[in-house]
Computed example of a mutant assay.
Amino acid sequence: MSESSSGVNTLTGSFPKSIPSRCSDLGVARTPLCVDRSPDSGLPSTPLPSSRFRFASWHRLQQCDVTGGQLTCPRVREGPTDEELFLREGDDVCLDRDRRRRREAEGRRWQERLQENWENCLELNLSYQDLGDPFQQENFLRILRRLIRVEKLQLVDNSLTNLSSVRLPRCRVLNLQRNRLVCLRQLPKLPVAEHLCLSDNAIGSLRDLGALRDGPLRSLRLSGNPVTFTQDYRARVFICLPKLEVLDGIPRLPEDSPPTRPLLPDSTKTCSIL
């Protein structure tokens, strides 16, 4: 069993528990791998050249022919520095040397952010980020706000709770499977979305679904959410989204037409499972 210079097992593709952030010599591992696709997402996914670099800062791969837009999961969850953690604890004692080191570290991070060039990404997979610290969540949202040209975005299993401050003006395919969204009001702004996957969240109401009415949405997945147990669930969705063609992987059927009886408000009655 051999290992590359980055500490990654080149035979099995496994990762060590900690990988150095300086990855200038990662060009030695060039065997292509494919992106793991979620079987329930129902969204298209393009094979990428390599997933061995998923925990590396992609703008530091200067000697590798894999570009940032081709990585499976570029690392965006860098944690706070020791100095920042020290200041968070409310200790008033802060030496000039520590302040100077903190300013230098912020300057280096700013230069790295300028090199990231998220604005030009067209297809991006930022799934499984394990955002356990508020600092990481803020950094993640900062990156999402910079995705002004992305067309296909995967955000699977990131424990996301609110993306209402994010706007994705060119995103056509968005996968938010297995997050912690509880209402549709927490979705990002998606003016041109065609395929949207919200499976396995905690969405319990169809309120605010009409915000997607004027867009070109053709495919929607809500399976695995409490809202799917609402009475006349499919009919309600198609009433809100008349342009929708596929719901939960099933094309629109004649039975999905609105019933002759008036529909009750969304939150008043649900199906009972005995």
Score class of each variant (00 low, 15 high):
His59Arg: 14
Arg146Ala: 15
Ser127Met: 06
Arg185Lys: 14
Pro20Gln: 07
Cys94Trp: 09
Ser272Arg: 12
Thr260Phe: 10
Val156Cys: 11
Pro251Met: 04
Asp256Asn: 12
Thr230Ala: 14
Leu174Cys: 06
Asp98Val: 14
Pro216Asp: 02
Leu26Glu: 12
Thr81Lys: 05
Arg77Met: 03
Ser5Arg: 14
Glu89Val: 04
Asp256Glu: 04
Asp266Val: 10
Pro134Gln: 06
Ala105Arg: 09
Ala235Cys: 14
Asn175Ile: 03
Ile143Ala: 13
Val35Lys: 04
Ser51Met: 07
Ser219Arg: 12
Leu184Arg: 00
Pro80Ser: 12
Ile250Pro: 02
Val66Arg: 13
Glu123Asp: 07
Arg97Trp: 11
Ser219Val: 11
Arg37Gln: 15
Glu245Ile: 02
Gly215Arg: 07
Tyr233Ile: 01
Ser267Leu: 13
Pro169Lys: 06
Ser6Arg: 07
Leu11Val: 09
Ser127His: 09
Leu26Ser: 15
Pro251Ala: 11
Asn125Glu: 13
Leu212Ile: 03
Gly107Tyr: 06
Leu264Thr: 06
Ser164Val: 08
Arg178Val: 09
Lys17Thr: 13
Leu85Asn: 05
Leu85His: 00
Ala235Glu: 15
Cys240Val: 08
Pro242Ala: 07
Leu85Met: 07
Asp130Arg: 15
Ile19Cys: 13
Arg37Tyr: 05
Thr270Asn: 06
Arg142Tyr: 04
Gln115Thr: 07
Arg101Phe: 12
Ser272Phe: 10
Leu147Ser: 00
Cys34Asp: 13
Ser4Trp: 08
Ile19Leu: 14
Pro16Val: 04
Asp92Ile: 09
Ala105Ile: 04
Glu151Gln: 15
Leu190Glu: 01
Gly27Ser: 03
Ser219His: 08
Asn158Glu: 03
Ser6Ala: 12
Leu220Ile: 08
Leu48Gln: 08
Glu138Val: 03
Ser6Leu: 11
Arg108Cys: 06
Asp208Val: 03
Glu84Asp: 05
Pro80Gly: 04
Gln62Met: 13
Cys73Val: 06
Leu160Gln: 01
Glu245Asp: 12
Leu155Tyr: 06
Gln231Val: 12
Pro49Ser: 05
Gly249Pro: 02
Arg167Met: 11
Arg54His: 09
Thr230Leu: 13
Gln231Asn: 05
Arg88Gln: 15
Ser223Arg: 08
Thr31Val: 15
Thr72Asp: 15
Cys94Ala: 10
Pro226Thr: 01
Ser4Thr: 13
Arg234Leu: 03
Asp25Val: 03
Phe140Gln: 00
Val150Arg: 04
Cys197His: 11
Leu263Gly: 04
Asn162Ser: 08
Ser38Gln: 09
Gly7Val: 01
Pro191Val: 12
Gly210Leu: 06
Cys197Lys: 11
Gln136Ala: 12
Leu176Lys: 02
Gln70Asn: 08
Cys34Ser: 14
Gly79Ser: 06
Arg99Leu: 14
Pro242Gln: 09
Arg149Asn: 15
Ser50Arg: 12
Pro169His: 07
Gln137Ala: 05
Leu196Thr: 02
Asn179Pro: 00
Phe135Lys: 01
Glu89His: 08
Asp40Leu: 10
Cys271Asn: 08
Arg236Thr: 05
Leu212Arg: 00
Arg103Val: 09
Ala56Met: 14
Glu83Ile: 15
Phe53Gln: 05
Leu122Trp: 09
Glu151Val: 10
Asp133His: 11
Ala56Glu: 11
Ser6Asp: 11
Thr10Phe: 01
Asn9Cys: 12
